[in-house]
Simulated assay, not measured.
Amino acid sequence: MDPLSTSEGGISLEKYRVKNAPDVAYYIPDFVTEQEGKYLLNQVYAAPKPKWTHLSNRRLQNWGGLPHPKGMIAEGLPKWLDVYAKKIARLGVFGDHIPNHVLVNEYQPGQGIMPHEDGPLFHPVVTTISLGSHTFLDFYKRREENDADSQPSLEEATSNKQDLNEPFLSLLLEPYSLLILQDSMYTGHLHGIAERTADVTASTVANLSATGYRVEQEIERTCRVSLTIRYFPKTLKLKLQFGKR
């Protein structure tokens, strides 16, 4: 039986809501089984080599098309991803839509991603299945460009030995889990993954009580693969002719 199903046959997310985080984050442990996780990893690594894009700090795969401000030439998701896109769609977080894009990221120990936002191209919801290793997803308060008086100068930050981008909250993402970010957690904050080989839990881990870990516990990272499953509303049927009017 689906662990998310209620006695009425519907799906309830409320018990998975991270109450110590701003609106809205849901953390669902064991969204996929260990067997499903192994199957998904096998499919990721069975992809043709040209499917991988190599960056300086990780490598990735795009499925469903290449997002572009002018639109995405939609490609059908392979069955092994479509199954989970539809499973997430049944949670209702994308409204009546079914996710049509999956970004696969591989992080080796010590690799991460700088604080960033996913931007307005996608429906303002992001969902992520974690496989392999855990990670800490760190959140940073957005600094208003017009609020210069509230921003510490470089000299002040250096003298106080403060990080200009210190996270105010973290989420511990365990293997097989699903993370859902909506509203201000999507649009109001930056998120990133620090380049570490191990993490130490702290009181700033908002979902710690939903995991099997305690405060001040060190967790070694291994290779992590994330499936970021999203809905891209602006799709095109014809091939884009970039550079032409």
Rank of each mutant, 00 (worst) to 15 (best):
R90C: 13
G71C: 03
P120G: 01
Q108P: 02
Y176G: 00
A157C: 11
K51L: 11
P152M: 11
K239G: 06
Q182K: 15
S133M: 12
A194E: 09
L91P: 07
A157I: 04
L81Q: 09
L13W: 03
V225G: 00
K161A: 13
N146W: 12
H54E: 13
L238Y: 13
P78Q: 09
E218L: 09
M185A: 02
R58G: 01
K19E: 14
I113H: 01
N146Y: 13
P22D: 10
E156K: 02
L121E: 10
R58K: 10
L103Y: 04
F136I: 09
D96W: 12
L137F: 15
F94I: 06
E14C: 09
P167E: 02
S7H: 07
P175Q: 10
P233S: 09
R230H: 05
Y213L: 12
G192C: 01
E14A: 15
L81H: 06
T222Y: 11
E75T: 12
F122T: 02
I113R: 03
T6E: 09
K19H: 11
P67L: 02
H101K: 00
M114F: 08
A202W: 10
Y39M: 14
T235G: 04
F232T: 01
E117G: 14
F136D: 08
N100T: 05
E218C: 10
R214K: 14
Y26A: 02
Q241W: 03
P115W: 01
G76F: 05
G110A: 12
D2I: 00
Y107M: 05
L60M: 13
Q151L: 15
L169G: 03
E195P: 05
G212S: 07
I193L: 12
G71Y: 04
P175A: 05
V24D: 10
R230F: 05
K237F: 11
A210L: 13
E216D: 15
S153A: 04
A194T: 08
G65A: 01
D82H: 12
K237C: 07
N165R: 10
L121V: 05
W80Y: 12
L178P: 03
A25Y: 11
T201G: 06
K38P: 04
I229P: 01
F232G: 07
N207Y: 08
R221E: 04
G192D: 02
I129Y: 03
H101N: 14
T158L: 15
M1I: 07
S177K: 05
Q111S: 08
K141M: 08
K161P: 03
A157D: 06
T222R: 15
D23I: 10
S133N: 12
L171R: 05
K161I: 11
E34K: 07
W63D: 05
W80A: 09
R230C: 08
Y27C: 06
V126K: 01
L77S: 02
F242R: 13
Q162Y: 00
S12A: 15
S209R: 12
V93R: 00
P109D: 12
F136Q: 13
K141C: 09
K234L: 11
E166R: 12
A25E: 07
P48E: 13
K70M: 10
